[in-house]
Design a protein around this nucleic acid. Structure first.
Lengths: 234, 234
DNA sequence: TGATGTTGACAACCAGCGTTGTCACTTTAC
DNA sequence: GTAAAGTGACAACGCTGGTTGTCAACATCA
């Protein structure tokens, strides 16, 4: 058994809501208060993805989000105390999507680490190409949001990094490198992936997916080989 | 001769100002108009580094910058049309510093690519540790400034990437990889370096320089070895 | 049917900040 | 010495956007 608890990587699994949800308040158009609120919150997050992903955090206004959500400001403040709070929720939502995607790939992974890496990267890159807002929110805008992101972003990045460290430790002969070094190396690989991804987005996905994924995988493979094989020279 | 024109990498070398600078305007406290303006501009950029590096672009205000510079708003708008313009100048200034630092390392580089990479990374990381505002401005805040940065940031990143591609092409047997792939790989390595750097900054330089540089260099070395040696298996 | 919860549209308030203007004071040039 | 340029402190304007409040229309439930 590897050290990594892959399940623990999954961000805040929805607590299987207790069967007896005490529905309070008056029903409206047939739906309970909680459901209406949840529905609005969902709409706001979806609108947040759209607006933040398009205009960025600082370019977005609460009013824009509300228009996109088809709701009014009042309901914005019903679900979120301010714009930053919405961004936090949006970020978590998107990060969860990506992590889940990678975890799925890892779960039904081939035993070969190289193939596993290639598959995970491909899934990641395809997802972003299908929805470039992902990249902007997760890898660019985060940096700009002061408060929540001093916490959230490192957490998410560490999530990916830890997953990678776990994989490396699982597949590599133990004791080859101290874990601290592995963490830095994994950090670097995460950075390489995201930088390539970001540039790919910015250049309008000009180069084919295979080339981009292949180049990124080459970095992973090189590192894996290097750490796997006993040191040769120098 | 390698393809790279290293000199061309250097951003906008100051044009050796013509000997006969037609000093206009009245002298004040013994200095000419142009010199006073240049002095103020310099102070503003220095203040910009301080304020942007501390509060970020969106957290900074023109007034803050002016206070830090010991000047008034009027002189801000004398040198820069708005806050974004100042950020652009600050960014260029810092990017130039770093690029120059790396170019210096490369210039008096050992013939061994591994040692060269290690030296360059060490210089880079030391510079940032000595002035963390560098990292924030160059690797974080850029993303958040819409207009100018859609241009500037890619340019600067491409600068580093192109330098790296040039190095690889110079030291590697030619024709091993298509250049397009090399560019993506170099992009990844730049991303790895900056991600590690950023995380190092955010964790308060807890881990020792040697460890961080070593881990980052490991990625470079692994890639270099992999591309240098003829493909083994797989 | 009537009282009350719910919604939507939108005005209003408030603060911050970019930007421009005012004015007294200092330095320079003649 | 005097007029004009230069400087510094700071007020003032205008806009934008976050946040709260108003009000009429509609839905629900007794």
């Amino acid at each position: 058994m590897p050290h990594v608890n892959i399940a623990a990587m999954s961000p805040t699994p929805p607590p299987s809501n207790p069967p007896e949800t005490p529905r309070t308040g008056r029903r409206f158009r047939g739906v309970a208060l909680e459901d209406r609120q949840a529905e609005r919150r969902k709409k706001l997050i979806e609108a947040g993805i759209e607006v933040f992903g398009h205009s960025g955090f600082h370019g977005a206004t609460v009013r824009q989000v509300c228009v996109a959500a088809g709701l009014t400001e009042r309901y914005f403040y019903e679900s979120f105390s301010n714009r930053e709070a919405l961004f936090g929720a949006v970020y978590d939502h998107q990060a969860e999507r990506l992590q889940q995607l990678i975890l799925d790939t890892v779960a039904r992974a081939p035993a070969d680490l190289h193939q596993l890496v290639a598959a995970a990267l491909r899934g990641l890159y395809e997802a972003v190409r299908n929805d470039p807002r992902l990249a902007r929110i997760l890898f660019m805008e985060v940096f700009t949001v002061q408060n929540a992101m001093g916490e959230r972003m490192p957490k998410a990045m560490e999530g990916f990094t830890a997953l990678l460290v776990g994989l490396l430790q699982r597949f590599l002969p133990p004791g080859h490198r101290p874990e601290a070094d592995l963490t830095w190396v994994a950090t670097g690989l995460v950075g390489a992936s995201t930088q390539i991804l970001t540039r790919w987005v910015l250049t309008g996905f000009r180069d084919p997916l295979d080339q981009v994924v292949g180049s990124c995988a080459l970095l992973f493979d090189a590192l894996i080989d290097r750490v796997t094989q006993p040191v040769a020279a120098s």
